[in-house]
């Protein structure tokens, strides 16, 4: 009797080694990636300790003295730090609000184009800005949006006041968000275009036969079929919410707009010495933790709303 029940138990919940034995090919597929993650991502993470230490190279990270939360206190007690956080959040949230839907819209619009050659040409053009560094782009923007530049000429023709894009705080923020959205749209659209190409063509045919218009097809077929991709990309983007785009701001910024454009990274680099590794690491860790919390929360919410269908983990 006892034997039988044990046997049954074994049958209901197979031992871990039985599972491994059965699914070893899948585990083998995970192995190279897992090894790379451990070797190149997890091993260097001992460096996070620097955030809590007075790092002296000669003593090594382990040998350096603990300073507890001192670096975090230095970071948070900086004059203007609250201001800097507000700027960072403002810029990155705006980038998320406008920059996240833009690639989706672009992909859907491109998907509606009929001529394949034209579509390919437009698509190729839109992803070009991804290949230019912000140094190059910032140089071009400074020319295009200058006070005597083409954009202001256009405003003049339209009878509007000229706009000081690099001197006026509000306009500068708009310019930062706008150019970031513009730069990322074409590149970001690629992943959605890939997802759209996976949509079963017969669905569109059936819809046409049923008399559904193009707009209806977009909302009833195209969008629902890329929803998983949209949600995945959104959750992944949330992790970056405290990275407002150092490279972009650093290249476009000038002292007249520092009040609205100073973000955590530019501030840490300028106000604290670039060589203060402890505070620098503390700032990075702070950003990582906030990003991690947001990703986890968004993931949980998505899982709850979609019956564990759409979350990333």
């Amino acid at each position: 009797m006892k034997n039988i029940s044990e046997l049954q138990l074994k049958n209901d919940r197979p031992g871990i080694f039985t599972i491994y034995k059965k699914h070893w090919p899948l585990l083998l597929m995970l192995l190279p990636g897992f090894a790379a993650l451990v070797l190149f991502n997890y091993v260097p993470m001992f460096g996070i300790l620097i955030a809590f230490k007075d790092y002296k190279f000669m003593k090594g990270i382990i040998g350096s003295e603990w300073v507890g939360m001192e670096h975090f206190i230095t970071l948070f007690s900086q004059q203007n730090f609250g201001h800097v956080i507000t700027n960072t959040l403002w810029i990155s949230i705006m980038k998320l609000i406008f920059g996240f839907p833009m690639p989706i819209i672009l992909a859907l619009l491109l998907n509606e184009l009929r001529g394949q050659k034209f579509k390919n040409a437009v698509q190729t053009c839109t992803y070009l800005p991804h290949f230019f560094s912000w140094v190059v782009l910032a140089g071009i923007f400074k020319m295009v949006f200058a006070n005597a530049g083409p954009v202001n000429e256009l405003l003049k023709i339209l009878g509007m006041d000229s706009a000081d894009f690099f001197g006026n705080g509000g306009l500068f923020r708009g310019l930062v968000v706008g150019t970031a959205v513009w730069q990322g749209a074409g590149w970001g659209a690629i992943v959605y275009l890939a997802a759209l190409s996976g949509v079963d063509e017969t669905l569109y045919e059936a819809a046409t036969i049923d008399g559904a218009g193009r707009l209806r097809q977009v909302f009833c077929i195209s969008i629902p079929s890329i929803i998983p991709t949209i949600i995945t990309v959104f959750i992944l983007n949330l992790g970056n919410v405290l990275n407002a785009g150092y490279d972009q701001i650093y290249n476009m910024y000038n002292p007249t707009v520092y009040e609205v454009a100073d973000i955590i990274d530019t501030y840490v680099l300028r106000a604290l010495s670039a060589m203060d590794y402890g505070v620098g690491t503390a700032a990075e860790l702070f950003k990582s933790i906030i990003g991690f919390i947001l990703v986890m929360a968004a993931n949980k919410l998505t899982n709850k709303m979609s019956d564990n269908e759409l979350g990333i983990m």
Partner: peptide
Amino acid sequence: EETPHKRFFTTVLVFTMLFNGGKIPT
């Protein structure tokens, strides 16, 4: 579906997207 420890392998992966050791430790 069948892959063992899927949650673990996903978490290990996502974690690296957000945390890194910094320039000098790397």
